[in-house]
């Protein structure tokens, strides 16, 4: 669904992200892990065509066979950010917002109502939330609403940038549960960008580790966490604080 080949993003002559090879297949959950300055968010923005003008991009990014996937933003490709409340129009009820977004895609009346109901059920939200304004919902609800919006618009890939790092751990667990459900039951593909190795290990099938703009390791999640090859991956795993075993 998304194929990246020889992607290189530069600002001036500094390479801020170089990804030789990255595929997100149908129903796959791929995670890019790294610390600040690793280039993980840059890669995500490159896919969406949302990079700063100062950045030059070489290599190819294809999504659904399209060469410039930014045109698919808001339909087949959806973006979920760290704090979605900022992206929701503050003066509009969530129901109105969703209805307008659907109307923009030519979905109206019964069909729109059906899709809305289904999408809300998929993210475990009550219909009642449609009557609320963005400031009246909590962080976790806003994040799940963003997912519902993506689903209703027919997204097949969700690009999520630190979607839970602003949330309390119990709320994070709920959003992760919803993401896992969409991924496992609805076959939704997810490209997750996160600094949290433990979070990534609980959801991703495939992991790409980045550091200073370069990919240091890439492979199936289970294998990588069991036998990390790169020194940096081992360092990340060791640095992740652990709970005592029960």
């Amino acid at each position: 669904m998304i194929e990246i080949r020889d992607l290189e993003v530069r600002i001036g002559d500094r390479v801020i992200a170089a990804v030789p090879h990255l595929d997100v297949g149908p129903g796959q959950c791929v995670a890019i892990v790294g610390e600040s300055g690793s280039g993980k968010t840059t890669t995500l923005l490159a896919i969406l065509g949302l990079l700063d003008e100062a950045a030059t991009v070489t290599g190819s990014i294809e999504a659904f066979g399209v060469r410039s996937p930014s045109t698919l933003r808001g339909s087949k490709i959806a973006l979920v950010m760290q704090s979605p409340q900022g992206a929701l129009t503050p003066t509009m009820r969530l129901g109105t917002l969703l209805r307008r977004a659907l109307a923009l895609h030519g979905v109206r009346g019964r069909a729109a109502a059906d899709r809305t109901r289904q999408a809300l059920r998929d993210v475990l939200l009550e219909d009642e939330i449609l009557r609320r304004y963005p400031h009246q919902v909590s962080g976790g609800q806003a994040q799940r609403f963003a997912l519902a919006l993506a689903l209703a618009l027919g997204a097949e890939v969700i690009l999520a940038d630190e979607p839970t790092s602003a949330l309390d751990v119990t709320v994070q667990a709920e959003v992760v549960a919803v993401l896992r459900r969409l991924h496992e039951e609805r076959g939704l593909a997810v490209l997750l960008v996160s600094h949290d190795l433990a979070l990534v290990s609980s959801i991703a099938d495939h992991v790409v580790v980045m550091k200073d703009g370069q990919v240091v390791e890439s492979g199936p999640a289970a294998e990588m966490f069991a036998h990390p090859a790169a020194g940096y991956t081992r360092e990340l795993i060791a640095a992740t604080p652990e709970l005592p075993d029960a």
């Binding site: 475990l124 909590s138 976790g140 609800q141 309390d168 751990v169 119990t170 709320v171 994070q172 667990a173 709920e174 992760v176 549960a177 896992r180 949290d196 190795l197 433990a198 979070l199 290990s201 609980s202 959801i203 966490f225 069991a226 795993i237 992740t240 652990e242 709970l243």
Partner: peptide
């Protein structure tokens, strides 16, 4: 969430 551990458990009522 824990590396190699079970997925984080949600109660669905955290908020």
């Amino acid at each position: 969430p824990r590396i190699g551990g079970p997925p984080p458990r949600a109660t669905g009522r955290a908020e």
